[in-house]
Each structure stands twice: as structure tokens, then as C-alpha cells.
Design a protein around this nucleic acid. Sequence first.
DNA 1: GTTGATGCAAAACTTTTGCAACACG
DNA 2: CGTGTTGCAAAAGTTTTGCATCAAC
Lengths: 147, 147
Amino acid sequence: MGITMSHLKEMFRERQYKLTAQRQIVLQAFLDHQDEHLSAEDVHNILRNQSSEIGLATVYRTLELLSDLGVLQKMNFGDGRSRYEINEASTTRHHHHHLICLACGKVKEFEDDLLETLENAVARKSNFKIVDHQLKFYGYCQECQEK
Amino acid sequence: MGITMSHLKEMFRERQYKLTAQRQIVLQAFLDHQDEHLSAEDVHNILRNQSSEIGLATVYRTLELLSDLGVLQKMNFGDGRSRYEINEASTTRHHHHHLICLACGKVKEFEDDLLETLENAVARKSNFKIVDHQLKFYGYCQECQEK
DNA sequence: GTTGATGCAAAACTTTTGCAACACG
DNA sequence: CGTGTTGCAAAAGTTTTGCATCAAC
């Protein structure tokens, strides 16, 4: 069970942010493109293509807002721009991680819940209060291995 | 046992790269600043401050070269620039990971060798040939917790 | 009505690139 | 000496910002 538009409305009311059309369609773009790691420009293009006009600066501002709220998670796959995806950690404890192909750059998802115990161990030893983690594997995807 | 300047010279000879003064002082900067996550500009400043003149473009080109060789590892902590550190994985199997404070942005290192088994499991299930991994924990450092 | 949000264009940054001069092997 | 490397300045790309206009509450 991920986040929904109603969740967003509630969060915004609580914090007295204005619920604008732009903010809703940005979240909707992520709901329509689950597990796709969209960049700011991706979101801008998606919205323009469905005739939902929005300024690129507003996209950036909204992505930052949604990240601060924990709705989105900002990530970096080394392609020179930030990418975002819905932060499942905000509603469930269901984590997934990323396999990044060093040859073609493709990013594949990987399900995992095995890091809980490690996280607890790290928290105890380091005196950090840990709230999230992010794990990336680098390697070569099957297709690139065959070449 | 990490990489040394002799290692670098040998690697360069093998691959017929030229061993320029600039390439040596860039590596030296990392040897002099272990576990510091330097950005291109950091390296540029460090070298300028010790009167080792070098162009910023050359720093970028050298960082890319050393990353391709596996000597450095490129990373991103969300501050809008790439950061690099000596890639211990190239000489030993001794990994370390990062604890990033969401309040003050400070990055702390964390020792770990526990991910080997997970890496193997992931490799088997995903058909990826995994060569490296990177793990980040997000949370609040002790100082920021006390505020 | 107020106040925060948007859109545009300009600005700020980081990173890349073209090209003449240079220096390693 | 030849070819790869450097330095500079310009270009490219992403992200941020100032400000007038607009719209949510």
C-alpha cells in the first residue's frame, strides 16, 4: 500500500501548504510511472505531453517539497541529474534497491528486507538515529555480459 | 593496504597512459586526505594551496580516468556535486559505507564486511554480474539528536 | 483580501569540450 | 619527434532565484 492522492491532501492541510493543481499532477505523474526513477525533465515532459502545462522551475520546487515531506526519495545514478521515486519507506517497511549496469546504465530493481538487522547494528554502534538506507549494486546485466 | 603511487605508475605503464605530474598530484591529494570525499573543486583548491598549479578541467579529466581505472570511486551525497574517494575495493575486500546526517549533512564512515552474502544472493537471483556495491544510511548524528 | 505559489527569464553552478601549446615516452 | 595531455575559455546542462502575476484558502 503506497501513498495516495488523499494522503497528500491530508499532509498538505496539516502543514498548511496550498494544494495547487501543479502539486497534484506532479505526484500523479509518479503514481502513473511506478518504479521509473523520473528526473525533473522527465516529469516536465510527461506533464506537457498530457497537456498539463507546468513550469520547469515549479517542477523542481515541487520535487524538493515532496522530498522534504518524505513522499519522494531523491537519488542519483551517476547520469548527471537527480532522479526521484515514490518513497515506499514512508508508508511501509518494504525496501527495494537498485542494480546499476556499468555498461549500458540500465537500472533494475531488487526487492529486499534483509537489511533491517544490519541497520539496527549500525545504529547501535554509531550513535546515529537511522531513518532510512539506500543500497546500490554495480555490475553487468545479463545482456551486456553476453556481448 | 591501499593503493600507492607505485601501483599507479605500474598501472599507467601497462596501459600506456602518460605519467604526468598532474595525475600524480591528484592521486597524492587523495592519499593525503584519506576518508574525506573530495569534490573536483576540493582537489583543485588543495593543489593550488600547496602551489601545485593545475587546471580545473584537468582535475575533472583525471578524476574520470582514475575512476575508470577503479582507483577512485565516484559518489554522490546529494550536495549537487560528485565526490570521490580511494576505492579500497580495488586492492582489498574491505568495504566501508556512509552514514549521512539529514540535519547537518555530515558524512561518517562505517566499517562493514557483512554484505558479501547478500551480494551473492542478489547476483544469483538477478543474473547480474555484480562487481561492487554502495550502501548509505540516512539519519541524525548524535550532536543533531541532542538539539 | 493575504499570503504563498507559479512562470518566466536570468543567474548560478557543475561538468564537458574545442583547440593551440606543451611534454612524456 | 609524435601523440597524448594540459590549460584556457567557451559551451553545455542542470538547478536555483528574483520578481511580477496569479490563485488557494
